[in-house]
Amino acid sequence: MRSSHRTESPPERTNEGFVRLSHLPRGVLRDIALVWLADAVVGVSFGAIAVAGGLPVWVPVLMSLLVYAGSAQFSAVGILAAGGGPVAAAATGLLLNSRTAAFSLAVADSLGRSRAARFLGAHLITDETAAFVLAQPDQKRRKAAFWISGLGLFAVWNVSVLGGALAGSVIGDTARFGLDAAFPAVLLALVLPALRADSMTRRAAAAGAVIAVAAAPVLPAGVPVLLALLGLLAARRGPGPRSRSGPRSESGSGSRSGRAVGRRGPSRTAAPGSDS
C-alpha cells in the first residue's frame, strides 16, 4: 500500500541489483517459458472447472490472486463445488500447502535481502519456482530464476484462470471437454517423479489412496483425503522403513537444503526438460 518509504538500509543491498533476463542462460529461460505455458493450460482448466462446478467467477479469480497455489486451489474448489463446506476446503488446502514452508526455507536466500523483496517474494514461492531456483548453480542465477519464473508465473496463472473462468461461464458444460479429467491428471504428473524415486513414499501413497477412495462414499468431501495421511503410519510400519534414513538426494544440483525439493520440486518442471 505505502510505497513511500525507501529502503532504509542501503548497506544491505550490497551484491544486489536488478534481475535481468541476461542473468539466465537461454535454455533455462526456455524451460521457464514452457512451464508458464503448461501452467496456463492448467489455469484455464482451473477457472473453467470452478465455474462449471457452480462457483461464482470471483471465487477462482480471487483465490488465484491470494492463495496462488495450484493443487491447493483445485482441491479447495473441488470440495466447495462438491458441497464439502468451507472448513474442509480450507483445511485440505492448508495441509497441501504446508509443504510450501519447506520450499520457502530452501529458497529463502534467493529472494533478495530487502524487506520488500522478502515479503513480496514469499508470495511467489511455488513448487515451480523452488525447482528452478534449486537447479541454478550460483546465487545470482538463483535470484534471477526466482524472480523471472515467479513473476511470470504469477501473471500467467492469474490471467489464464480469469480467462478460464469467463470461458467456463460461457461454455457451461465443461464436462463435455473432459476438463474434469484434467485435474487428477495434473496431480498424477506432479507426483509421479516423487513416487518413482522412493518406495516408502509409494507405500504411504498407495495406502492413503486406498483409504481415501474407500472412505469417499460414506464421509463428507474433504475428509477422505485428510484420512489418507494415515497412509504415513502404514508405510512406517512396513518392512524396512529404517532404510529411509539413507541418503537420497540423487540430484547433484541439490547441494543445499534442497532435499525435499530435489524429489518433489522438479516434478512439474521436469516435464519440459529442466535438467538441461
Binding site: A205, A209, V225, L232, A260
Partner: peptide, 11 residues
C-alpha cells in the same frame, strides 16, 4: 514432503 505426496495421490 511424503505427507504432501500422500495427500496429492489421495486427491
Amino acid at each position: 514432503t511424503v505427507g504432501a505426496t500422500v495427500l496429492l495421490v489421495a486427491l
